[in-house]
């Protein structure tokens, strides 16, 4: 198997009894707590750090529920006001025929958040037990999650822009709903979950199973 071969061919810093810095790559003695080059806090890869991932992920999931249930925007036109939720806004975009933008918003606020919950959960589980994907595919998955996570903020910014822009007194005005806050929190929490995941664990699990 390729994975076990990798584990034997390459020596990791933690197996050599040293600690590699995740910020600058400097190799530190095993009892160091602060990197000698960049003075970041350092620690050997430890599956216990996954607790932080699970905690942030749960917080993100909890905040994602009100983000979908409560209204994102309240539009008032000529004294008549209507609320629109996250999904309602997307349906409206499609009804207007704005398919391109509709797809962007759908991806940013529905597809990416859900895919991120699944992907981070999968990564956190996979370092504990044998996984079907090999290390490289899991690393690619992690990098995609880390890169794409912040783009979910688009919808929050759209709400902010619309609120600032559409203030035409009686004719039309838009104000933000409570879902905007919970959606922003949900995105921030999942970003933190992805950041607290230590990718070195993906390889640490392989070398353990090879021993």
């Amino acid at each position: 198997m390729e994975n076990t071969e990798n584990a034997q061919r390459f020596l990791t810093a933690s197996r050599a009894g040293m600690i590699g810095c995740r910020m600058c790559g400097a190799v530190n003695p095993g009892d160091a707590r602060v990197c000698t080059r960049c003075s970041s806090a350092i620690a050997p890869p430890d599956p216990a750090s996954l607790q932080a991932v699970w905690a942030w992920l749960t917080a993100g999931l909890i905040a994602y529920v009100p983000a979908n249930v409560y209204p994102m925007l309240r539009t008032t036109t000529l004294g008549h006001s209507s609320d629109s939720t996250l999904i309602g806004g997307i349906v409206e975009l499609f009804a207007h025929g704005a398919f391109g933008v509709g797809f962007i918003v759908f991806f940013a606020s529905i597809f990416i958040p859900i895919a991120k919950f699944v992907a981070i959960g999968y990564l956190a589980i996979s370092v504990r037990r044998p996984s079907t994907l090999d290390s490289h595919s899991r690393l690619v998955l992690f990098e995609i999650v880390e890169f794409i996570g912040r783009w979910s903020m688009i919808d929050v910014f759209v709400v902010a822009i619309l609120t600032a822009l559409v203030q035409l007194d009686f004719a039309a005005s838009i104000s933000p709903g409570i879902a905007a806050v919970s959606f922003a929190l949900s995105v921030a929490f999942t970003m933190l979950a992805a950041q607290s995941f230590d990718p070195r664990l993906i390889w640490a699990a392989n070398s353990r199973s090879a021993e």
């Binding site: 207007h96 933008v101 880390e146 903020m153 919808d155 910014f157 822009i161 822009l165």
Partner: peptide, 27 residues
């Protein structure tokens, strides 16, 4: 380096584009 993922100026511009389409029917 630490705040790099949290600086979202470039995401804002996509937000502007989306807002543009949403409002264009109204005004």
């Amino acid at each position: 380096e630490w705040i790099r993922p949290w600086a979202m100026a470039e995401i804002f511009i996509i937000g502007v584009a989306v807002a543009l389409v949403k409002v264009s029917g109204l005004a």
